[in-house]
């Protein structure tokens, strides 16, 4: 008997149910989403507008610049040796990211596509290290670098990356796992060495994953403040941009327009990098294995 009944078509019914209220609902939901999104933009707009105000107008009730003082972006370079700080930041982020790639890509391959005893244990250790709040090891590491007489430089921040970075190893391993084993086996069958498999098969195929890992580590190091504060604060020549920026506020009279101009300059590279590589970035996040 049931066979006689017409099959229910949920999809069609769903569409019908939307019917008349559909349009209003569409407008309402999109407006709410857009409004929420714009709220995230407000602090940024505030920073950018203040950056081009006169010192007198900054932090007043007048939120829109009376005259656009673009010269602020030039003045900050005269007020502080920003180029030195920029150099330090680039040294930290650039060398750390490059070093991370050289050391973490092979490790991630060994964790993803080679079989060996202790592999799971090693991976577990990497994940545990990745989750550890940095404060727990801050003191012993500081003493270690102090003993090596490297505090006051960016090297305590860079050197660990030459050995790898836990989060990057994790991310790369997750990515490498998505490359079908068959490709690896085929390359091996053709007599490719393991280094060859890695360089000629895995790396080209995992380019988006590697780009994401590089992007994350560049942004993380570029934005890092705790590390540079701990190690470089004692010597102003070694300051990164983030430490220099924070010191702006400690000065006897804060010129907020200039401080914000410097802030814009510091966040610009991060923002541009993000806009250029947005897809890679989002893909990398959803790839951190949170699914399932």
């Amino acid at each position: 008997m049931t066979a006689v009944l017409p099959r229910r078509r949920p999809a069609a019914a769903y569409r019908r149910a939307r019917g008349s209220t559909g349009f209003l609902e569409w407008v309402a939901i999109h407006s709410i989403a857009l409004a929420l999104g714009l709220m995230f933009l407000l602090p940024l707009v505030f920073v950018c507008l203040t950056a081009v105000m006169s010192d007198r107008q900054a932090l007043t009730a007048e939120l829109w610049p009376r005259q656009w003082q673009w010269a602020n972006f030039v003045t900050v370079f005269e007020k502080a040796p920003l180029l030195t700080y920029l150099g330090n930041s680039l040294l930290y982020s650039g060398v750390a990211t490059a070093g991370m790639l050289v050391s973490s890509v092979p490790a991630a391959y060994a964790l993803a596509r080679l079989r060996w005893r202790g592999r799971n244990l090693a991976f577990l250790a990497v994940v545990a290290a990745m989750m550890l709040p940095p404060q727990v090891v801050a003191v012993p590491l500081y003493l270690l670098w102090a003993r090596l007489d490297l505090t006051g430089t960016v090297w305590p921040l860079v050197i660990p990356y030459l050995l790898g970075d836990f989060f990057s190893i994790f991310l790369l391993r997750q990515f490498f796992l998505t490359i079908p084993r068959d490709y690896v086996d085929a390359a091996r069958a053709d007599g490719c060495s393991e280094a060859g498999v890695l360089l000629r098969v895995i790396v080209p195929m995992a380019r988006p994953g590697i780009a994401a890992a590089a992007l994350f580590s560049f942004l993380y190091t570029w934005n890092d403040y705790f590390g540079p504060l701990l190690y470089t604060a004692e010597r102003p020549e070694s300051w990164t941009l983030s430490v220099a920026l924070a010191s702006f506020r400690g000065m006897h009279r804060v010129e907020w327009n200039l401080t914000m101009a410097a802030t814009v300059l510091v966040m610009l590279p991060a923002l541009v990098l993000f806009l250029v590589a947005q897809k890679t970035f989002v893909k990398g996040i959803t790839f951190t294995g949170v699914k399932g």
Binding site: Y225, L245, W256, F281
Partner: peptide, 30 residues
């Protein structure tokens, strides 16, 4: 658009968020 706005806040240095809030909320702030 919404996705970009929200994620942009995340790639910025924490210090930027801190400065923006500080300038906005402090005693002689906006």
């Amino acid at each position: 658009i919404v996705g970009m706005l929200v994620v942009a806040a995340w790639v910025l240095p924490e210090i930027v968020a801190a400065f923006a809030l500080y300038a906005f909320l402090s005693g002689d702030g906006t």
